[in-house]
């Protein structure tokens, strides 16, 4: 199911999951958290895993550094199967995989500086060397003036910055982010994501992002895997999945649902228009109404700038006249704009 064609050159994947399964034994019986996961993550990419809560994404990320031992399958880090390592070798291997969490998980009794020193202490790095490295990293994440602060004195965004600095202390090749921005407000989320992106670009650290929010994926990821009911149901570049979601779950994650959708009149035919790149700078809707001579009702619109290109989507209500619908579709086809009738899609 995996295609590496999206990546330039056929590099060897840095992380490869093969036939990964994870089953939890609970009193209520066996719970299958992951079923037959195959995944290859390329060095230097920002890879997203999106899914609803309970889909298995947190378990998936914990299998990558073997915090959860897989029930079956392989976890290859640069070709080396982590599952087969001895305990000591595994502890060693984990130093090349940093991890940040939704709840930050900083040591509450240590200053920001000492928190960043922590993984270095564990790795047996000399005290002075560790502090120098920690200072450098705290400067990198923009907290040069908060080194002596304790976590309780820092805001959520600052705590996550400390956590990022801490995760980078041992120069990891991979950074795992488990819902790292889910506890943060939208502005802080944006700045943390921007930081992760710059870390990726500056140091070439491969980043795996676990989230339930499409906006996180849109902002930083190159490729995305959609996970639903313990399986990967879709995988591709963010553009591909965003423009043409194949699975119902991916469409649910991309399209507005929940409370908002209830206001959308049911039973009417709707058309989803997806803008990619230049097309969102063109007055598409105005052009469409003029060219086709129909009035369209915009039910939902969300456009944004992603990675220097404009992306977005709009949901318009179609007129009851079949002829008008055809002319609208023809107009969109002519302008090379992807559209899909969402009539069968149950909001």
């Amino acid at each position: 199911m995996l295609q590496n064609t999206t990546e330039p050159g056929a590099e060897k994947p840095i992380i490869e999951l093969q036939g990964l399964c994870k089953t939890f034994r609970t009193k209520a019986g066996e719970v299958r958290a992951l079923e037959n996961i195959d995944l290859a993550i390329q060095p230097g990419e920002i890879f997203g895993v999106i899914g609803l809560s309970g889909a298995g994404k947190s378990t998936l990320v914990r299998c990558i550094n073997c915090l959860e031992a897989p029930t079956a399958g392989k976890v290859l880090l640069e070709g080396r199967d982590l599952v087969k390592l001895s305990k000591k070798e595994l502890l060693e291997a984990r130093r090349s995989i940093g991890m940040i969490f939704q709840g930050f998980h900083l040591l509450e009794q240590r200053t920001a500086l000492k928190n960043v020193c922590f993984p270095l202490e564990i790795a047996g790095v000399k005290h002075e060397e560790a502090e120098a490295r920690a200072k450098e990293l705290l400067e990198l994440v923009g907290l040069a003036d908060r080194m002596e602060s304790y976590p309780s004195q820092l805001s959520g965004g600052q705590k996550q910055r400390v956590a990022i600095a801490r995760a980078l202390a041992t120069n990891p090749k991979v950074l795992l982010c488990d819902e790292a921005t889910s506890a943060l407000d939208p502005n802080t989320t944006r700045s943390i994501l921007a930081l992760l992106k710059s870390v990726n670009q500056q140091f070439g650290v491969t980043i795996v992002v676990i989230t339930h929010e499409m906006k996180v994926i849109e902002q930083i990821c190159h490729r995305v895997a959609v996970i639903d009911q313990s399986r990967i149901v879709e995988l591709g570049t963010v553009q591909e999945v965003f423009i043409r979601p194949k699975s119902a779950i991916a469409r649910e994650l991309i399209l507005p649902t929940g409370g908002q959708s209830k206001e959308i009149p049911l039973g009417r035919r709707c058309l989803r228009i997806v803008f990619d790149g230049n097309s969102s700078f063109e007055p598409v809707i105005s052009g469409l109404t003029l060219a086709c001579g129909v009035l369209v009702n915009i039910l939902f619109a969300d456009t944004k700038d992603i990675d220097g290109r404009a992306f977005g989507q709009m949901l318009i209500q179609l007129p009851d006249d079949d002829g008008a619908i055809e002319s609208i579709q023809a107009y969109l086809d002519e302008h090379g704009i992807y559209h899909k009738e969402e009539g069968e899609y149950d909001f």
Binding site: L67, L91, R95, M99, H105, I122
Partner: peptide, 21 residues
């Protein structure tokens, strides 16, 4: 917080290091 312990484990801390550090 078990999360702090998990974070330490993710950094490759041994059982002894988790207890003492």
């Amino acid at each position: 917080d078990p999360g702090i312990i998990e974070a330490a484990q993710s950094m490759g801390a041994s059982t002894g290091q988790i207890i003492f550090k």
